[in-house]
């Protein structure tokens, strides 16, 4: 299974357009942000004394949506590609089972989706450390850890949900559309339930992600359960479809 995971990882990384876009778009945003802030600082250091430091690093949350979008696209493609492309039957003909294939790809997907987000994250951290930030608190190790955890959980979970949707839908374009719609809008719409039933808030994905990475007064145990159950539901839907689909 490790040889297959390694080969599948190489295959995903060979999708140069997708991978480069996933890496370079967030990196470009960080560079543009840094350039604009430096320009303002150089032009008028009195009004704009701080460029780096903790405030620059907090742009992680701005990049979060971009990372979720790319993680979702990668997950949906990874899930739907083989059926849509007609390559699934040739994988199954090697004797490699559907279940093993489905399970092997989960860690590969997590590595790719999180891996493409890391360069921008590291660049943001470097910018926060080296750009001028007089009077501004510097970035702490705990802050780095917290935001890294947030990145890993957000990108990883949304990519896994998209993977489950991709396997279930089996059309690459359709899977991307549905997964993006669900991840960017649908799950947020669930938050409206809290207006009528405030007690369900800890069971919503957004709340659980915030609770685990940023803290809060709700139960951490419930948050962890939610972070497991939400992707597990979509993965289960995908798995049921994967096991029943005629390749």
């Amino acid at each position: 299974m490790i040889a297959v995971a390694r080969a599948d990882l190489r295959r995903m990384l060979a999708r140069r357009g997708l991978i480069l876009a996933s890496v370079l778009v967030p990196v470009a945003i960080v560079l543009v942000l840094a350039a604009v802030l430096m320009f303002l600082h150089v032009r008028n250091a009195v009004d704009h004394p701080t460029v780096g430091g903790s405030s620059f690093f907090s742009f992680v949350s701005l990049l979060g949506i971009i990372w979720v979008v790319f993680g979702t696209v990668i997950g949906a493609i990874f899930g739907a590609e083989d059926v849509a492309n007609g390559t699934l039957r040739y994988i199954l003909l090697t004797g490699f089972s559907r279940l093993r294939l489905f399970l092997t790809r989960i860690p590969v997907l997590a590595i790719v989706a999180i891996g493409v987000a890391l360069p921008a994250f590291v660049l943001l951290l470097i910018g926060a450390l080296i750009l001028p930030h007089a009077g501004e608190p510097s970035v702490t190790a705990s802050e780095v850890g917290r935001l890294l955890l947030s990145l890993v959980l957000n990108v990883g979970i949304y990519a896994l949900i998209a993977y489950g949707i991709g396997v279930a839908i089996r059309s690459t374009g359709g899977a991307i559309a549905v997964a993006l719609g669900l991840n960017l809008i649908g799950i947020s719409l669930f938050n409206l339930i809290t207006l009528a039933v405030p007690g369900v808030k800890p069971w919503l994905l957004d709340s659980a992600l915030t609770r685990v990475s940023d803290g809060g007064d709700t139960s951490i145990a419930i948050a962890i359960v939610v972070l497991i159950v939400w992707p597990a539901v979509f993965l289960a839907i995908g798995l049921v479809r994967a096991l029943r689909t005629e390749a």
Binding site: A3, V4, R6, A7, D8, R10, R11, A14, R15, R16, Y90, I91, T94, G95, F96
Partner: peptide
């Protein structure tokens, strides 16, 4: 998006 050789190497991993 893979070469002929890369495709065969990928399937060789499955085999």
């Amino acid at each position: 998006y893979l070469s002929g050789r890369q495709n065969l190497e990928l399937w060789a991993a499955y085999v």
